[in-house]
Amino acid sequence: MHHLPELGFLRESDIIGDPKSLPPKPAVIPVSRSTWWAGVKSGRFPQPVKLGPRITAWRVEDIRALIDSF
């Protein structure tokens, strides 16, 4: 299991990973970006929270609940 903080927010790259970052971020939920956003739109994945005009994040609690539902 990946280490997730108890509280707070996760960005998209924290959830689906980013192999191009240094160091590479492993995926907590191994899906593509388009699959992630399609799941958000359909309600399969949690809805994001807008923290600013260009900052979208998800509550850690929502991602933990999603992982537990698998």
Rank of each mutant, 00 (worst) to 15 (best):
residue 23 P to Q: 00
residue 39 G to W: 04
residue 64 R to W: 04
residue 32 S to N: 04
residue 39 G to D: 02
residue 41 K to W: 07
residue 54 R to E: 06
residue 39 G to Q: 07
residue 7 L to W: 10
residue 20 K to Y: 03
residue 67 I to M: 14
residue 59 R to M: 14
residue 26 P to H: 09
residue 67 I to G: 09
residue 54 R to Q: 15
residue 14 D to I: 01
residue 28 V to M: 03
residue 6 E to H: 08
residue 16 I to R: 01
residue 3 H to L: 14
residue 36 W to V: 05
residue 26 P to Q: 11
residue 17 G to F: 04
residue 58 W to N: 02
residue 67 I to C: 11
residue 29 I to L: 09
residue 59 R to E: 08
residue 40 V to Y: 09
residue 35 T to Y: 09
residue 16 I to L: 04
residue 9 F to G: 02
residue 69 S to H: 10
residue 44 R to L: 14
residue 70 F to W: 13
residue 14 D to L: 02
residue 32 S to A: 13
residue 7 L to S: 14
residue 2 H to G: 11
residue 13 S to W: 04
residue 61 E to T: 13
residue 70 F to Y: 10
residue 14 D to N: 06
residue 62 D to Y: 12
residue 6 E to S: 12
residue 1 M to D: 07
residue 61 E to C: 12
residue 13 S to Q: 08
residue 66 L to F: 15
residue 55 I to R: 14
residue 60 V to D: 08
residue 36 W to T: 02
residue 33 R to S: 04
residue 58 W to E: 07
residue 4 L to Q: 02
residue 35 T to H: 07
residue 47 Q to C: 01
residue 61 E to K: 12
residue 33 R to M: 05
residue 16 I to F: 05
residue 68 D to E: 14
residue 50 K to P: 00
residue 37 W to H: 08
residue 11 R to C: 08
residue 23 P to I: 00
residue 52 G to S: 05
residue 17 G to M: 02
residue 30 P to K: 06
residue 8 G to K: 09
residue 62 D to N: 09
residue 33 R to I: 00
residue 3 H to C: 14
residue 61 E to Y: 12
residue 49 V to H: 11
residue 8 G to D: 05
residue 58 W to Q: 04
residue 70 F to V: 11
residue 24 P to K: 06
residue 20 K to N: 10
residue 35 T to N: 11
residue 3 H to Q: 14
residue 61 E to W: 14
residue 28 V to T: 03
residue 9 F to Q: 05
residue 9 F to V: 09
residue 15 I to K: 03
residue 20 K to D: 08
residue 23 P to Y: 00
residue 45 F to G: 00
residue 70 F to I: 15
residue 61 E to R: 14
residue 41 K to P: 09
residue 10 L to K: 00
residue 36 W to Q: 09
residue 35 T to F: 07
residue 63 I to F: 05
